Simulated scan of single mutants.
Amino acid sequence: MIVSLSLCKQTMSLLDIPSGVLKSNFFRPRLEKEKVVILMGATGTGKSRLSIDLATRLPAEIINSDKIQVHAGLDIATNKIPEEERCRLPHHMLGVISPYTDFTATDFVDMASHAMDSILSRSQVPIIAGGSNSYIEALVDDEDFRFRSRYECCFLCVDVAMPVLHQYVSERVDKMVEMGMVDEVRSFFDANANYAVGIRKAIGVPEFDRYFRAEPYLDKQQRGKLLQEAIQEIKRNTCKLACRQLEKIHRLRNKKNWKIHMVDATEVFRRRGKDADEAWEKLVSGPSTEIVAEFLYNFSPQTLVTKPNLRVPSLPCGIML
């Protein structure tokens, strides 16, 4: 993988404050509205990694807003963050719904609202992270204006230039195949299944349908060819999803005037190993921590150590695969 997942490391501090002090009572928010952090971005840009970085530096818990990852099962195909990489941080709404049950925007709003109440009751900050922007929009811009009347939001979007992200997505799919995605999805295969319901809507499931149906009747060479066609289709569909997600974020910024901080992670994805980790801290995790700290604790921009690495991505994005 391009980006190393050394997620539990805390390598920066704000204002030369000792590590962990941001979790102390001294820095509790004091405004009337409750504070919520919402992390957005296209698939594969590092939203889960950033949510853990923030939650290890601030008094926070994480709420999943990916409408597919809310289902139990298919952990590889749905790219759920592994348990060992969650740094023992509470993750809400991750792998908790039956894989055969549909999960609507209304369901998300109800569950996320309860999760936020629970987190806030412990004097923690809810960090909502995921790629289902329509569900986030349903939560934030509800018809009765209840959310906006109660909560103040800090929106962060991890942005990666599309050609670079497309290459990363291709490599990530190959890695998922190496990890056993084909056998994992095969265990869910049902010739009579409805791919419009539950976890079977996930990219990486319907693409294998033709392969699994034909597999018993093909020789090794034919199976290999059909398998590669399915994998390439997964890559194409994932890149199309990334473009749709970015387009929705642009609509929320430009049409609905959401104030979304765009943090450019492109250079991170061009690097490998330690260089990628250092770039992540410098260009993404550090600036994002500063933005959120200013939002929560009213730090003025002049007191922050570095400036955010901001970029407004261009549209439209082309499908490269």
Rank of each mutant, 00 (worst) to 15 (best):
T266N: 01
L31W: 07
H261E: 14
K80D: 00
R88L: 10
L310E: 14
Y195Q: 09
S6M: 09
P18D: 05
V284M: 04
M162H: 07
L218D: 06
R88K: 14
G20L: 12
K240I: 14
F155N: 00
S134A: 15
A42D: 01
L296N: 04
A293C: 09
E171F: 09
L120I: 14
T101S: 12
E290Q: 15
Y100M: 10
R200H: 13
V169R: 10
A105H: 06
T78I: 03
F27V: 04
W258I: 04
A242L: 03
E152V: 03
E34M: 11
K248Q: 15
N254P: 03
V3L: 15
Q124W: 02
I249W: 06
N309R: 09
V268M: 03
Q221C: 12
F27D: 00
A138C: 07
V305N: 14
G204Y: 07
S149N: 08
E84G: 01
R270E: 04
C157P: 00
L31M: 11
D16G: 07
F188H: 14
R28A: 13
R311F: 09
C154I: 06
Y297A: 14
K274N: 10
S6D: 13
L321P: 08
R57C: 02
P18I: 10
M162V: 12
G44E: 02
L74V: 08
R186V: 07
R49Y: 04
G46R: 01
K9V: 05
I128Q: 01
V185Q: 00
K225G: 04
L58D: 01
E281W: 08
S149T: 07
L94S: 10
V37T: 12
K259E: 08
P316M: 12
L296E: 01
M162K: 10
S170C: 10
A293D: 03
L156H: 00
I260F: 10
P59G: 02
E281I: 10
C243Y: 10
T101W: 00
S170P: 00
P99A: 07
Q221R: 13
L315I: 12
V169I: 15
T306F: 06
S24F: 08
P59M: 06
Q222N: 05
Q167L: 06
T43W: 02
V169G: 04
K307G: 02
A72H: 04
R186T: 08
R223K: 15
M181G: 01
A193W: 05
L226Q: 12
K256S: 08
P82N: 01
M1I: 11
S24A: 09
F189I: 12
E152S: 09
W280T: 05
R272C: 12
R88S: 13
P216F: 10
D102S: 09
L241V: 08
V263C: 04
Q245G: 04
A105E: 05
Y217A: 10
I97E: 02
